[in-house]
Simulated scan of single mutants.
Amino acid sequence: NPDADQLERILKRGKRVTVSLEVTARAAGKRQSGNVIAEVPGRDLTAGIVLIGGHLDSWDEGTGAIDDASGVAITTAAAKRIMDAGQPLRTIRLVWFGSEEIGLFGGAAYREAHRGEKHHVMAESDFGADRVWRYQTSVAPEALPSMRRLGAALAPLGIVAGGKNGDASGSDISEIQKLGIPVIELGQDGTRYFDLHHTADDTLDKVDPAQLRQNVAAWTAMLSVVANDPADYGPVPPR
């Protein structure tokens, strides 16, 4: 986006513009990838899994700090906080997905490997590290009272409900969501995101520590509710 903005400014000044474009993309064939999985075991192993995470791979020009090292760090830190506070009712499964950028292959592989397991709800962080400002849901209508409890837990952090039930999704979990598993989406401020996304500017200095901490607090609050709520959130009817 910053390069496009610069081009627009030059053109508005009536200047002649010459663009030199070097294309280095190539098909390299199949390569080995994988998902990294860790768990915070719940007290009731039959109560279903709370699946959270982000993706490990990044676009090659930058370092992947906002896409998606931040998401991996945020969800990992929140799971650690829940674990340190005591054992939750439901198991929290943290997944660092592989091969998201080239086709959501990590999410599809997880779906096929774990489709027989009971998943209570899923959530993914894959939109940088700026503050969470709203939450969205894709849950069964019967679970909406529980979502009000979630809203009460998130409100002190300045987070409001947004959209309609059924809007929540995520990149890697979109493949697993097709099985009818409920989803909660913690929506981040995307004002800066596409200035950095998939560019050489995606580096650690762009991550704001205060906003990163707000993300961890939001995810910790969300997990404290959904991992201990005895109510079922699904299955979700197909969209």
Rank of each mutant, 00 (worst) to 15 (best):
Asp68Tyr: 01
Asp68Asn: 15
Ala69Val: 07
Ala69Thr: 10
Ser70Met: 04
Ile74Glu: 04
Thr75Arg: 05
Ala77Pro: 01
Ala78Phe: 00
Ala78Arg: 06
Ala78Gln: 02
Ala79Glu: 01
Ala79Leu: 03
Lys80Arg: 14
Arg81Tyr: 05
Arg81Phe: 02
Ile82Lys: 08
Ile82Met: 10
Ile82Gln: 04
Ala85Pro: 05
Gly86Ile: 07
Gln87His: 10
Pro88Trp: 02
Arg90Ile: 12
Ile92Gly: 01
Arg93Gly: 05
Leu94Glu: 02
Val95Ala: 07
Trp96Tyr: 12
Phe97Gln: 02
Phe97Ser: 04
Phe97Lys: 04
Gly98His: 00
Gly98Asp: 07
Ser99Pro: 05
Glu100Trp: 01
Glu101Asn: 13
Glu101Cys: 00
Glu101Arg: 08
Gly103Tyr: 07
Phe105Glu: 14
Phe105Arg: 11
Gly106Thr: 08
Ala108Glu: 15
Tyr110Ser: 03
Arg111Glu: 15
Glu112Trp: 11
His114Val: 13
His114Leu: 09
Gly116Thr: 15
His120Glu: 08
Asp126Leu: 04
Asp126Lys: 05
Asp126His: 04
Phe127Cys: 09
Phe127Lys: 04
Gly128Ala: 02
Gly128Val: 03
Gly128Arg: 00
Ala129Asp: 03
Asp130Leu: 04
Arg131Trp: 07
Arg131Gly: 04
Val132His: 05
Arg134Gln: 14
Tyr135Asn: 10
Tyr135Gly: 11
Thr137His: 07
Thr137Met: 12
Ser138His: 14
Val139Ser: 02
Ala140Glu: 09
Pro141Ala: 14
Pro141Trp: 10
Glu142Pro: 06
Ala143Asp: 06
Ala143Pro: 01
Pro145Ala: 11
Met147Gly: 05
Met147Val: 05
Arg148Trp: 09
Arg148Pro: 00
Leu150Glu: 01
Gly151Gln: 10
Gly151His: 09
Gly151Lys: 06
Gly151Leu: 13
Leu154Asn: 00
Ala155Lys: 14
Leu157Pro: 02
Gly158His: 08
Val160Pro: 02
Ala161Cys: 09
Gly162Thr: 01
Asn165Lys: 05
Gly166Ser: 07
Asp167Asn: 15
Ala168His: 03
Ser169Glu: 11
Gly170Asp: 09
Ser171Lys: 11
Ser171Pro: 08
Ile173Val: 15
Gly180Ala: 09
Gly180Arg: 06
Ile181Phe: 02
Ile181Glu: 00
Val183Lys: 01
Glu185Asp: 12
Gln188Leu: 07
Gln188Ala: 13
Gly190Ala: 14
Arg192Thr: 08
Arg192His: 13
Tyr193Thr: 03
Phe194Asn: 12
Phe194Ser: 05
Phe194Gln: 11
Asp195Tyr: 08
Asp195Asn: 13
His197Lys: 05
His198Tyr: 03
